[in-house]
Simulated scan of single mutants.
Amino acid sequence: MSVTSGSKRQEGGVGETIRVIFHALIIALVIRTFLFQPFNIPSGSMKATLLVGDYLFVSKYSYGYSQFSLPLSLPLFSGRIPGGMTPERGDVVVFRLPSDTSTDYIKRVIGLPGDKVRVSDGVVSINGKPVKMDRIADFVGEPACPNPFIDRVRQWRETLPNGVSHNVLDCSSDHTRFPQTTDEYVVPPGHYFMMGDNRDNSTDSRFSSVGFVPFENIVGKAQIIFFSVNEGEQAWQFWRWPVSVRWSRLFTIVR
């Protein structure tokens, strides 16, 4: 009698564990599909806003859902559902590269549909008006330019026409291949013009490899940094966390 009872309890315990794990996986899938998806930053194109080694949550509901919100990007529908909110200038968004929809990029929205965007001597103009640029303290501490030996980079506070402000870096003294002056870009309907905050080290809408980004390709809006390790460190090496984690960046809002 006791052996049978014990076996039933053991089987019940195993079954309950399996059910808990299954339910947890379903909940995680629902959260990842409809609410928040984690991403990590592999490059310095968004410095100083986002650093290599940052881990952040992207809200997938901010602009509605497209096929790229779904697991495996299943093409079950076109456009976005439900309609409503659209990206605003200054939003930091994750999107699928138009030329390779298996690749995720993260940049800042600079131009909206119908906008005319031009870069002149490193200053962005939107619809013929240069955005406000205020010189602030240099960015130091981590390599940000194509030349890794430059450890101090000029930094500006850029204010877009809607009042959103953010920091941008200026590596122009490094003689980079990134254009300081461009032609005028006219953003087509239903598309957005993206730029990295590290302007001289960012492949973005200024380049044909990225170009204008269709609204449908936007995965979601970057919201919060939930974890961060120093560049070159591995997040899974928990024994190094006392020295590798950037504690001051944890749970900071992405702006």
Rank of each mutant, 00 (worst) to 15 (best):
L72Q: 10
V109E: 13
D91T: 04
P42M: 08
P75G: 05
R96C: 08
P130Y: 10
V168G: 10
D197Q: 15
K116G: 11
E231W: 07
S78W: 13
N162P: 07
M194V: 05
P189V: 15
L97G: 06
G163A: 13
R240M: 09
L72I: 12
F77W: 12
R32Y: 07
V164N: 02
V164K: 08
E158I: 04
H175E: 03
S99T: 11
A222H: 02
S59A: 10
P188R: 09
V93N: 05
M85S: 04
F95L: 03
S43I: 01
K107T: 00
G13H: 15
V109A: 14
P38V: 11
V30E: 11
M1C: 07
M46T: 04
F212C: 10
Q67E: 00
S43T: 09
V168T: 13
P42G: 10
R154H: 14
H175L: 04
I110H: 02
T252L: 15
S45R: 05
P179L: 00
N147K: 11
M46Y: 01
V20C: 04
D204T: 03
I41L: 01
P71R: 10
V58L: 00
G79N: 01
C171W: 09
V243T: 14
Q237P: 12
V243G: 11
F215S: 06
A48C: 06
P188M: 15
L76I: 02
V93Q: 06
R118Y: 06
L29E: 06
N147V: 09
Q223F: 03
G15W: 11
F68I: 00
Q37K: 02
N230M: 07
A24N: 14
T252R: 12
D170W: 00
L70K: 05
V210R: 07
I18K: 14
T181R: 11
R108N: 00
P87S: 09
G220V: 13
A222G: 15
F226V: 05
V186I: 12
G84T: 11
H166F: 06
T17V: 04
A137M: 08
T49A: 05
P189H: 07
S173L: 11
I41R: 00
F178V: 09
D183F: 13
N217H: 06
